[in-house]
Amino acid sequence: MAFVTPFLLFLIVFQYIPIGMLVRNSFFDYTLLRPDDQKFVGLGQFERILADPSVTSTFGVTLLFALGVLVLVVPLGFLVAVFLNGRFPGRSIVRTIVFLPVVTSVAVTSTMWLFMLTKNGGLVNSAITGLGLQPVAFLTSIPWALISIIVMSAWQQIGFAAVLFLTGLQSVPDDVIEAARVDGASRARVIFSIILPLMSRTTLFVVITMTVFSLQAFAPAFLMTSGGPEDSTSLVVYAIYNAAFKLQDPGFASALAVAVMFIALVLSGIQSLFLRTKWSY
């Protein structure tokens, strides 16, 4: 216990106490400009969340976003890992390149993608119109805007997932694979029936980490789409930032944050249960 104490001390002082303050703030109505002028509203802020369809849709958008990122990152990250696990010239260079977006700050990657995806004169649309097709409003039309920020976020995280999967792959014993190959199993079968189940812990870690990251994503909505068009990319943390710093509504922002915490808790709980029962043996 003595070894855990310093960690706990800092955790209590710098995480639990502020989280406690956050929960407390969610029962009040006040502004940052007049922090002393607070009004207790009970569960009023939470009622506002449930009553306002534009706020509830924020949660829907965020879940869709998280789902989209998961659907792209997990399989693609795995495939890239399988690919990188093979032998070919320049392997370490390719690995470095895939990992580049992970080390780049999201402010920089968002700016890059903003200009790549912009409708007139963006890199992607220049290529599209070069083929004689009509340009696509990737960032300013529904549903493209949401798709675009999903793809951008997945692009940034694939390297991280791939490295995690790669380490998992390298710890799968060679003799297991050999035995399966001798039994006549195809390459794909080996991957899906032998390797994947052996990597359930990695998969769980990737899935939970990506879920939490996605639920907390902020910069793509802030820098690339400003939540638009018509709130179709209004991620919940962007809504929190807006409520707290732009709309002078920190009590409401706190209530939203408490709701995010709760959802993240439930989701990661379900994910662990599901993935564990399916793949443990």
């Binding site: 300013t140 039309s141 400003s226 939540g227 638009g228 068009p229 018509e230 807006n242 732009k246 709309l247 002078q248």
Partner: peptide, 21 residues
């Protein structure tokens, strides 16, 4: 005395109109 909020919300509204709302 609420220009920050006004600016943010009106800009969003105008943007949505430009985008076809």
């Amino acid at each position: 005395t609420h220009f920050v909020e006004y600016d943010q919300l009106v800009s969003e509204g105008l943007r949505d109109i430009a985008f076809g709302a």
